[in-house]
């Protein structure tokens, strides 16, 4: 196509060469999945996109919100459109690790112990109100998330692949909760909050049928093998040296900031890169651009930033750091 002088001719908008083997089908399926989610969770497109990004980056998601804004619905909808089997665990203070991981029970008929898998063996696990459980139970889940395997009674068992945990917690409730320690928060790739829906979306929500009924009608747009392909592809998305420089500059800014107790860890840097790659893939690009980093920076980083005790002006928010760092 020739270069048309400005004002005439059509815009020269060709997509960057995708690197997925079957690009049209894959992006099509991704878009279909996102559209289906959008039909369930109304008016929350950015969050849905980020949740999908988190999933493609093989990370786990922490949703921090008040009850009733659709956390569970989101998890269910995600599981359905991606064709994943789903387990939900309601965390309470008396929940034991075995309740999550599973337990070996002696069976009289075979005269042997047989392992009964816990809910964590599902491809998608919703850990509802994760901060209500005891630290011991919390760490059992978080270790499983990190290792992608569980060791019960000396025997190691692999968790399924794909494996995706969505944990929710309610920040407003402070009584009888065990707040997740910082080291555990680091295990979540992203933290999102859904918030109240916009008015128009809430109107539609009230007028339409029950979400649960709609969920039941949802058919999968992707299947686990394709999801794995997409996760692999996301790791192949090119991150140019200039972008690595950008991520490094962002990390340094948090480390040098007086308002923060400590800067971001290298693991946070890796998380940022992985999330940016997945974001680029969702946008149909074969290379990360600065906007990808910016899109994932706040959800990836906000829950890892610890305000300094003596910080007077208050801790900087992730957005402020983003605005303060120049793109190299």
């Amino acid at each position: 196509m020739p270069l048309a002088p400005p004002g005439r001719g059509q815009p020269l908008d060709w997509p960057l060469a995708p690197i997925i083997t079957d690009p049209t089908r894959m992006t099509h399926a991704l878009n279909a999945a996102l559209a289906a989610l959008d039909g369930i969770i109304l008016g929350k497109q950015p969050q849905l996109r980020l949740a999908m990004t988190c999933l493609l980056a093989r990370g786990h998601l922490l949703i921090e919100d008040i009850p009733g804004v659709g956390k569970t619905t989101l998890a269910l909808a995600l599981a359905r459109v991606l064709g994943l089997d789903f387990q939900r665990v309601q965390f309470t203070s008396d929940l034991l690790p075995a309740d999550i991981l599973g337990v070996s029970i002696f069976e009289a008929s075979t005269a042997a112990f047989r392992f009964h898998r816990g809910p964590v063996f599902a491809q998608m696990v919703l850990a509802d109100e994760v901060n209500r459980a005891s630290p011991k139970t919390q760490s059992a889940l978080l270790e499983a998330m990190e290792e992608r395997q569980v060791t019960v009674e000396g025997e190691t068992r692999a968790l399924p692949d794909p494996f995706f945990v969505i944990a929710t917690q309610n920040p407003a409730q402070q009584i009888g909760v065990f707040a997740l320690p910082e080291s555990q928060l680091d295990r979540f790739l992203m933290r999102l909050s859904l918030g109240y829906p916009p008015v128009a979306a809430e109107r539609a929500l009230l007028m339409e049928r029950e979400r649960r009924d709609l969920l039941a009608e949802l058919s999968p747009s992707l299947h686990p093998p394709e999801l794995l392909d997409l996760q692999r592809a996301s790791r192949e998305v090119r991150t140019a040296p200039a972008l690595i420089d950008y991520i490094l500059a962002l990390l340094r800014a948090t480390r040098e900031h007086a308002g923060l107790r400590q800067g971001l860890s290298p693991r946070a840097g890796l998380a940022l890169r992985r999330a940016a790659q997945a974001h680029a893939l969702i946008e149909g690009r074969s290379a990360v651009i600065p906007e990808d980093v910016q899109a994932v920076f706040v959800p990836c980083v906000a829950h890892r930033l610890m305000p300094a005790a003596e910080a007077d002006g208050g801790a900087p928010r992730a957005e402020e750091i983003l605005a303060a760092v120049a793109i190299p």
Binding site: A4, P6, A287, I289
Partner: peptide, 21 residues
């Protein structure tokens, strides 16, 4: 809007050269 075509080319080529290798 008059610069649309030039801007699109600018963005596309720059992203390809600088970020897509």
């Amino acid at each position: 809007p008059a610069l649309e075509a030039a801007l699109d080319t600018l963005l596309d080529t720059y992203l390809r050269l600088r970020y897509a290798g």
